[in-house]
Nucleic acid binder design. Structure first.
Ligand code: SF4
Ligand code: SF4
Lengths: 134, 134
DNA sequence: GGTAACAGGACTTGACAAGTCTTTTGCTGC
DNA sequence: GCAGCAAAAGACTTGTCAAGTCCTGTTACC
């Protein structure tokens, strides 16, 4: 259980590659895809999401490509994962009250909340700088 | 992401109900299903798995039903979850080396290991006694 | 032997993961 | 302003798996 999808894994690979490049060096999608071994068309979708949430910047046309939107030490793994996978929800009742009609008196409910907090804590403390290879 | 399936949630509901009953009181599947609001045929599958992994005992025929295989304080939530959902794997590379060809030099790999350890730690520290309602 | 209960297997339905393909939009540079 | 480059967007495919249902078998009690 609790499996990250390929999309999530690919997303991390791709953005870590960006973080490993010299600052302000624009990378082509084709270049990233080849480097991290992900189908280019699939990676395109992922980077579109990144672009929409604002953690990477994109440029079209000749000389275009992708660039991190901020310094690697300010982008956390949590941001990256939640950008493509959505919020971390060990169980659906964590999302909001009322999702499960038993939540008012459920003794298990707090456990999932705790799991969510812990996982978020781990991911939030890791930045792209920690992951980049130089 | 990281969502527990319904099966997992139902499994917990069911076994917590068992843990909330007086010791040695055999419960019928129909009774459990009604109490925790789960389709009986689906819950049957779940309890078959419990029975096979040995965390509940089952009895057939007249007067049959289900019983916890041990005292509630000795059965952890981790055992329950892994019995029906399989091992906790935040990413497939955690399972064993070689699942991902990039794992030798992957800087992200240890993160998932850490997540797995933390989650397992939380679940292993909660027993059915903690969850039972009396 | 009949009935009460769990065990096991086959099957269904829908959603969603993991892509692919095609078209459109925007940019740069001659 | 046109050519060509590169990302954006959307429609489509394929396979797997979650979430059940249904039917038949097996075991135990009386
Ligand atoms: S843990 Fe409790 S509140 Fe959450 S979905 Fe399960 S039964 Fe509902
Ligand atoms: S985290 Fe690294 S080793 Fe694990 S699956 Fe992703 S790329 Fe492979």
């Amino acid at each position: 259980m609790m499996e990250l999808t390929r999309k999530g894994d690919y997303a991390i690979r791709g953005i870590v590659y960006l973080a490993s490049q010299p600052p302000n060096k624009i990378s082509l999608l084709s270049e990233i895809a080849a480097a991290v071994d992900v189908p280019q068309t699939f990676l395109a979708k992922i980077f579109q999401q990144f672009s929409k949430t604002g953690i990477v910047k994109s440029f079209r046309g000749t000389g275009g490509g992708f660039l991190l939107a901020g310094p690697p030490e300010e982008i956390t793994l949590l941001q990256v994962v939640e950008a493509v996978e959505g919020p971390i929800l060990p169980n659906r009742c964590v999302l909001k009250a009322g999702e499960c009609e038993r939540d008012v008196s459920c003794t298990v409910h707090p456990v999932w909340h705790q799991v969510q907090q812990k996982v978020r804590g781990i991911l939030a403390n890791i930045t792209l700088k920690d992951l980049a290879t130089n």
